[in-house]
Amino acid sequence: MFENSINPLIIFFASILTSNMILSNFLGMCSYISISSEYKTASGLGKSVTLVMLVTTLINYAVYHAVIVPFGLEYLQYIVFIMIIAASVQIIEMAMDRFLPDLHVKLGIFLPLITVNCAILGTTLFMVIRDYNLLQSAFFGLGSGLGWWLAISMLAAIREQMAKTKLPKGLAGPGIAFIITGIMALAFIGFSGIFNIQ
């Protein structure tokens, strides 16, 4: 796949709107569903995901092109990527604790969760599959993170309102969350056609 000619800005907006990580690629669903009943928490998680996604995409880009490709280690890429993600989450947490203690108090509890968030690994894998260059990867990582944040905050805001509503038996909780997400995804389809990166 050769898509190297795409403008990084188009990738940026497309990864927020048309190929949103949650609404069109279904990535990061586990935490998306389980940590979206409160707006504040959801938004905090969204911020951490954005940060981690940008950082890990860049590190993975560097490692992929500097180590994995020259040495022909493609078959090891999954292990390498997941280890890098786990390690950089740990380092980001420590650095934040040291330099930005305020932010650490707010986001700290979410960071360990992010290691197992599929959206992070997914962004890296998409970057590799679509063969992005450095600038494209940076914008893709940032855009995907922002898109994820947007989606989880929207769902959390809706669910906060829904909490007071009476629902049919058994639908409350994850069931209705998925149906809301479906409606959101339907709305986001309206953006398709503006940009297309897939």
């Binding site: 038996k169 058994g170 994850p174 209705i176 969350a177 149906i179 479906g182 995804a185 339907l186 389809i189």
Partner: peptide, 25 residues
Amino acid sequence: TIMVMPPAAFFIIGVLIWISSNLFA
């Protein structure tokens, strides 16, 4: 066409969760 697109997947799984939580809760 909607069935091939993402929203349908969300709707179907939402309904399946609804059914299963009534059956097995």
